[in-house]
Structure formats: structure tokens, C-alpha cells
Design a protein around this nucleic acid. Structure first.
Length: 604
DNA sequence: TTAGGGTTAG
């Protein structure tokens, strides 16, 4: 038994009794669920006021619940608060909990303050908080990433004897993890009583959310060793970890397991499967899960759209979008992100801009990511000036990432003057990103601006900015082999290098010409440049795969940066000459090489 | 009122 002060509470705080059981009769109660719009709610409320029934406890409870549930938006929440504020002395713990839950769900600006305000009011009115109060309060802190408030709420919960409650512990873990305090989350996890699946879920999810998929899998294994039965939430998170790692085989194993325990009919589980398969490079499997689904929600459709887009199949992505609309499913902001992304990666400029405009018809306000897609759409297609203007005139402050999108298009289109303007804008916002210096310095080199190139490199040294080394991996027989550019670390790297030499000689016979324009160490001669390019990590992985798999096996490669044009060209030749499919996942998309062509249509 | 959850530009 743990003797920690947080978990030693002998009798966990029980839910406080609602003063007003929901069944309590009210003539207008049955009309409430039908009021789906705010206007309808306000009308019904007005009727209640006329009849003097607006403060009827059961009516208030139902109204507040309706305005704070999953489908409710910020406007509903505001309305709930107004109704609540008109009650002279709110005395039901349920009302406070409901409002807190609403703020926890909606998150964003001001939600934390509002939630804190509700809690303070509760204290003033002398209403005793229960475990649900703390759960919602902590969730609000998590949603707002308010670590300080979270710690305070934790302290209050300890005083109230609620911190060790089986509902509160996982919420505390989640709160600390969301607020970036992994150590505190760990500490809570270590101090929990017994083995709690939900706490494991909270830890696994936290690991995935902060891009530590390996840690998530370790926790999952630990759960299995302890004989704890994973829930759908566990499996969704673990699938997400597989997606991050690109671990297709493990993902398939989890899929089998899901079928075995019959969780394969859950929409959310299937959605996670589609995402996992797509991100692990198997679009076929993603499509097959999607097609076999009995029902699909908004997220399932959106994930499928993103999956097609990611793999370079823009037309297919759009046709899924059309089908979704035909079935009467309303697209949301994420759906549109997928649609815009599909357009920008397939050169569908006009369509993309039309879809962007159509967001308004659905009442969706574009966010920074939508603007990012439009920037990409314009820039990638060569409309650099228009893209510059677009970013410059945005209604919100652009981020360095937005300018970076444009800079990389300047590199692709060889526009050094625009590149310089953009590079300067980036430095104003963030001068620590090695990739920016590399792109601009390569751009200078390719256009003969040697002096400027040297300046950029000097600046980079002064600021102590480093280039991220290229790294690729390939999974063969459940083993992941990792190669760094020019690397000699892998036990078979000598062999891989020899294979690269051999492959390149063969490719040259059918017309492959090494393209040396994307070598960062530009002070080298042409010969040296070709050598430096020769052992790029992708080339090592591809060659290693050719040696170690039987003829005809698909090669699946994951790269940490964008693939360079020379490796892209080499992969196309390999797919033709060696008759192999190569599926390469780059920093931001997939390339399918087959018979000498790539699914990206050389537009990436 | 009932913890924990999938999709998101470059």
C-alpha cells in the first residue's frame, strides 16, 4: 500500500449529491433537447421566463448540460454562463461542474480564467466541490496549458482529500503532461495505487503527444506484462505511436489484436487504423479499412482525405471530399486542411483557391495552417510574388513557418531575389533554424551569388546554428536500420556504399545524371560534390534494401528531411531498373516510386 | 455531471 500523502485518502471524496435530481418535473423540459440552435434555446428560455419557470433547478441543469456538451461551441458556453449568472445564489454542485466541464472542453483564450472564476464563485457560495469538480477544473488547466493554475488546483484537491481518487489521478497525470511537466506526470503515475489502465492511457497518450512514441510502446508492453487489458483508447494511442515511428509491422500486429478482441467495429479505432496505415506508407491498407467501415464520421472522412493527399493522390482526395458532402456530412476545419493540402500537393491551384473561399460558406474561419496551405499552393506553383503578398496581408501575424514555406519554393524556382527578401523576414522572427540558411545559401550558390552565400554561412556560424544531418531508415524483418548521410556507423555501411557505387553505375547507363545543385558544401569541385551526394542517407537505405531483400520486395524508407532532387531522381531510376516499388516517407509527404515515375509527379 | 482518445500546413 502506498503511504503517499496524495493517495493515502482513506475515503475518496464521493460525488456530492445534486440538490435537484434530473427527473424533477418541469413542463418545458422535454422541449429542451430539440433546441439545437442558440436562437431556439433563447426562445424556449424566454417562454420559461414568462411562465416564471426559468430558475427551475431541473430546467437549469438540462439547459447548462446542453450548452456545454461535445457539440456545443463557445457561443453556447457564453449563453450557459449568462443563464447561470442570472441565478441569485446557485447552490447545485452540478451546475458548477457542468460549466467547468464546458470550459475544459472549449479550452483556448480566457477559458482558464473563466473556469477559475466559476471555482471561486463556488467557494463563495459555500458549495462543496466533489471529484467531478476537480476533474473538470484540472481538465480546464490542461486544455489551457496552465501549469501554475494546475499545481494550485492540485494543492486544493489534496486539501479536499480528492487527489487520490481514481478519477482524479489520471486527470492529474494528463494535466501535468499537457502542461509540459513530464516529471510531475511521471511522479503522479509512480505514486498511483495499484495498476490503473486509465493512468497508463494518460501516460501513453502524453508520450505520443510529445513525440516520444518509443516511450509509449514501452509503457504499452509494461501494461501487457502486468496483464492489464488495453482499452480502445490505449490502442488508438499505440496506433498513433506506430504512425509516428512508421512501424508498419507492429501496426499490423495491433490491427490483428484489435480484431481478436473485437474492437474493430469502433469508428474511432478504425480511424486510427487508417491514419496508421497511411502514415506507415500502406495506402492500400488504409483504403481497405476505410471501405470496410460500416459507418463513418467526420473524422474518418477527413483522415482518408489527408491520407490520399499525403501520398500525392489529390484527385482521389477530392473525390472522397465530394462523396462526404454527398452523404450529408459537414466538413470542418481539419477536412479543409486536408482538401487544401491535396490541392497544393497536386498543383490544383484554381480549385484550391476556390475551396479556400468556400470555407466561409461553412462558417469556418481559416487558421494559420489553412493560410499555410494557400501559401504553399501559390508558392509551389511559382506565384511567388502573390504568395509574398498573401502572407504580408494576412489578418493574423504570420509565423516563421509560413515564410519558410515560401523560402523553400523560392529555392525550387531559383528566385534568389525573392529568396533574399523572404530570408530576411524569417530572420526577424526566428534565426535558429538551420534549414533556412541551407536553402538560402544553396539558392545563392546555384545563382552564382558567392559573396552572399559566404555571408550566410558566416552568419550561420556566428549564431551557432547547425544543419540537421540527413537520416533515413528502412525496416527489414522487423529491424529498423538507420543511416546518416555519409555515415559509416551501420555495420553494413561499407557494403551499402559499395552497392550505391554499383547501382549508380548501372543507372548512368540508362541516363541517370547526378544532379549536384543541392549540395550544401558548395566550395567543393564538381567531382567532390558528386561524391558527397553519392552517400546521401536515402541512397544508402535504398541500396541496403536492394541487397537485403528478395527481388520484387517493396522498399519502405523514412527520411527525416525533405528528399533532395538527386535522390528523388535516383529512386525513380531504381524503381525502373531494379523493378522495385519504393515508398519513401519524407518530412512532409510520401513518394511512391514505380516504373520510373513518382506519385508526386515531381511536384513537391 | 462519470477520467483517458484518433485527424491538423512546412
Amino acid at each position: 500500500m502506498s503511504s503517499s500523502p496524495l493517495t493515502a485518502t482513506p475515503s475518496p471524496l464521493l460525488p456530492a449529491k445534486s440538490k435537484n435530481p434530473p427527473s424533477h418535473h418541469h413542463p418545458l423540459l422535454s422541449y429542451l433537447p430539440h433546441c439545437t440552435t442558440l436562437r431556439a434555446l433563447a426562445q424556449l428560455h424566454a417562454v420559461a421566463v414568462k411562465a416564471g419557470l426559468q430558475a427551475h433547478p431541473a430546467f437549469v441543469t438540462r439547459l447548462l448540460t446542453l450548452c456545454t456538451d461535445q457539440r456545443a461551441d463557445a457561443a453556447h458556453l457564453d449563453y450557459a454562463r449568462q443563464v447561470f449568472d442570472r441565478i441569485p445564489h446557485p447552490d447545485d454542485v452540478v451546475w458548477y461542474n457542468t460549466l467547468l466541464r464546458g470550459y475544459a472542453r472549449c479550452g483556448g483564450g480566457g477559458a482558464m480564467e473563466a473556469a477559475a472564476g466559476v471555482f471561486v464563485r463556488m467557494m463563495e457560495e459555500g458549495v462543496a466541490p466533489d471529484t467531478y469538480t476537480f476533474v473538470s477544473l484540472l481538465k480546464a488547466c490542461a486544455a489551457a496549458r496552465a501549469g501554475e493554475e494546475g499545481r494550485q488546483a492540485h494543492a486544493v484537491a489534496v486539501k479536499a482529500g480528492a487527489a487520490g481518487h481514481e478519477y482524479v489521478v489520471p486527470t492529474l497525470i494528463n494535466m501535468y503532461a499537457e502542461c509540459g511537466d513530464a516529471r510531475a506526470a511521471r511522479a503522479m503515475f509512480g505514486r498511483m495505487d495499484g495498476d490503473c489502465v486509465v493512468s497508463y492511457n494518460a501516460m501513453i497518450t502524453a508520450a505520443v503527444r510529445s513525440s516520444r512514441p518509443g516511450e509509449a510502446l514501452v509503457l504499452f508492453r509494461e501494461m501487457q506484462e502486468k496483464g492489464l487489458k488495453p482499452t480502445s483508447v490505449t490502442l488508438i494511442s499505440v496506433l498513433s505511436a506506430c504512425a509516428l515511428l512508421g512501424a508498419l509491422e507492429l501496426g499490423r500486429w495491433i490491427h490483428e489484436y484489435i480484431k481478436k478482441i473485437r474492437l474493430d467495429s469502433l469508428v474511432k479505432v478504425n480511424t486510427a487504423l487508417i491514419d496508421m496505415y497511411a502514415k506507415c506508407g500502406s495506402l492500400e491498407d488504409a483504403v481497405s479499412v476505410f471501405q470496410d467501415m460500416e459507418s463513418r464520421d467526420k473524422q474518418a472522412w477527413s483522415v482518408m482525405i489527408v491520407a490520399y493527399a499525403n501520398h500525392g493522390y489529390g484527385r482521389e482526395a477530392i473525390s472522397v471530399f465530394d462523396e462526404m458532402k454527398k452523404q450529408g456530412i459537414k466538413p470542418d476545419d481539419v477536412t479543409f486542411l486536408g482538401v487544401l493540402y491535396a490541392c497544393s500537393h497536386s498543383g490544383m491551384v484554381t480549385e484550391g483557391l476556390q475551396y479556400f473561399d468556400s470555407m466561409r460558406d461553412y462558417g469556418i474561419v481559416p487558421g494559420i495552417k489553412h493560410y499555410g496551405c494557400v501559401t504553399d499552393l501559390l508558392a509551389r506553383s511559382g506565384q511567388l510574388e502573390r504568395a509574398y503578398k498573401f502572407i504580408d496581408e494576412l489578418p493574423i501575424k504570420p509565423t516563421a513557418i509560413l515564410w519558410r514555406t515560401l523560402l523553400s519554393a523560392c529555392g525550387g524556382h531559383g528566385d534568389v531575389d525573392m529568396g533574399k527578401r523572404v530570408f530576411e523576414r524569417i530572420l526577424e522572427l526566428d534565426d535558429s533554424h538551420g534549414g533556412d540558411y541551407v536553402i538560402f545559401s544553396n539558392l545563392c550558390a546555384n545563382t552564382g551569388r558567392w559573396e552572399e552565400m559566404n555571408m550566410v554561412r558566416k552568419l550561420m556560424n556566428e549564431k551557432g546554428v547547425v544543419k540537421v544531418p540527413g537520416c533515413s531508415s528502412i525496416e527489414i524483418d522487423n529491424m529498423v536500420h538507420e543511416f546518416f548521410s555519409g555515415d559509416g556507423r551501420h555495420p553494413q555501411s561499407q557494403e551499402a556504399r559499395r552497392m550505391v557505387d554499383e547501382v549508380i553505375e548501372q543507372l548512368k547507363l540508362v541516363g541517370y545524371v547526378p544532379n549536384t545543385s543541392h549540395v550544401f558544401h558548395v566550395e567543393m569541385g564538381e567531382e567532390e560534390k558528386a561524391t558527397s551526394l553519392r552517400y546521401h542517407s536515402e541512397k544508402l537505405s535504398i541500396s541496403f534494401g536492394l541487397i537485403n531483400t528478395s527481388p520484387g520486395t517493396t522498399l519502405r524508407i523514412v527520411k527525416n528531411l525533405r528528399v533532395c532532387p538527386d535522390c528523388h531522381s535516383m529512386a525513380k531510376f531504381v524503381s525502373m531498373v531494379f523493378n522495385r516499388r519504393i515508398i519513401l516517407r519524407d518530412l512532409n509527404r510520401f513518394h511512391h516510386f514505380e516504373d520510373g515515375v513518382c506519385s508526386c509527379g515531381d511536384y513537391w
